[in-house]
Write a protein that binds this DNA or RNA. Structure first.
Length: 134
DNA sequence: CAGGTGACCTTAA
DNA sequence: GTTAAGGCCACCT
């Protein structure tokens, strides 16, 4: 492991996502992208929407995550808002779980916030295009 | 069917 | 650095 703790290997696509229909629904596209966020890195609802080809639909990303089947075991905790803050209200169980999961991966969470400049996932377009069936 | 809600975003103070 | 308003749109009720 390197000093940054961010030197994870390429993210694996969850098995549950391998067998998506040839024409993924918007929700499935979002699940796909979220599954690609590497351990120790984060992205935002808006960016995920962009990567999924659904610009302007950040809110839909949260809807999609809420509705994701648990068997997909998505890394939902790697998605925060555009300010780098955990979207759940502080002192809620969800907030604590998300923070705990992030810290476990080596992400620095200070006062419910993460420095995007340090931890944001920046996929290159080629990776996205190649990894996704759409 | 109509209106409300929300794990959001950008912009403008 | 903040916050507030307006926009957004799929899902719920």
């Amino acid at each position: 492991m390197d000093s940054t703790g961010l030197n994870e290997q390429l993210p694996h696509i969850d098995d549950g996502l391998q067998s998506l229909s040839p024409k993924p629904s918007p929700k499935e596209k979002i699940w796909h992208i979220v599954a690609m966020i590497p351990k120790g890195q984060i992205s935002s609802y808006g960016k995920i929407a962009d990567y999924a080809g659904l610009p302007g639909r950040a809110r839909f990303v949260s809807t999609a995550l809420k509705q994701a089947p648990s068997n997909l075991t998505l890394p939902w905790h790697r998605v925060v808002n555009s300010q780098g803050k955990i979207a759940f209200e502080k002192h809620t169980p969800a907030f604590r779980e998300q923070m705990q999961r992030l810290v476990m991966e080596g992400v620095l969470v200070k006062d419910g916030r993460i420095k995007l400049s340090q931890f944001e996932w920046k996929p290159d377009m080629a990776t996205l295009v190649l990894a996704m069936p759409f």
